[in-house]
């Protein structure tokens, strides 16, 4: 259901993008979804199938999803490591001064349109 909210916002953003670029049909939309963004890909696709029918701009548009692997940076030893495997604790120095560098994204990357 969270995914439906995201799709509604994608559609809203695309309406502005279409206006700015003077296009009226969108053939595909590519989203970048971070590995730890909490977004479930299959739900997102289902919501897209449902919601696109409501809007002529996107009704025939395909949703493409590019996954971004989550990476965390450690401020103490300045190393990057995979987030999903190690979590918040740095596997190199054992410290907790870490922050998510990549992985929480939920971006519209590009569209194909005419």
């Amino acid at each position: 259901m969270h995914e439906l909210g995201i799709i509604v916002h994608v559609a809203k953003t695309l309406k502005n993008v279409a206006q700015q670029n003077n296009v009226s049909k969108i053939g595909s939309v590519t989203l970048e979804i971070g590995e730890v963004s909490g977004v479930v890909e299959s739900y997102l696709t289902d919501c897209w199938q449902y919601y696109r029918k409501k809007d002529s701009l996107i009704e025939n548009s395909e949703l493409k999803i590019e996954k971004l692997e989550a990476v965390t940076f450690c401020d103490d030893c300045e190393e990057l490591y995979p987030t999903v495997r190690y979590g918040r604790q740095c596997p190199y120095c054992g410290g907790y001064n870490t922050w998510l560098a990549v992985g929480s994204e939920c971006n519209i990357k590009e569209i194909e349109a005419c």
Binding site: H9, E110, I111, E112, A113
Partner: peptide, 19 residues
Amino acid sequence: MTDKMKIIEVKQSVFADND
């Protein structure tokens, strides 16, 4: 239809308009 399609870079967070 596809041959007329052009790629438009959006590069915007889905949450940007809500923010």
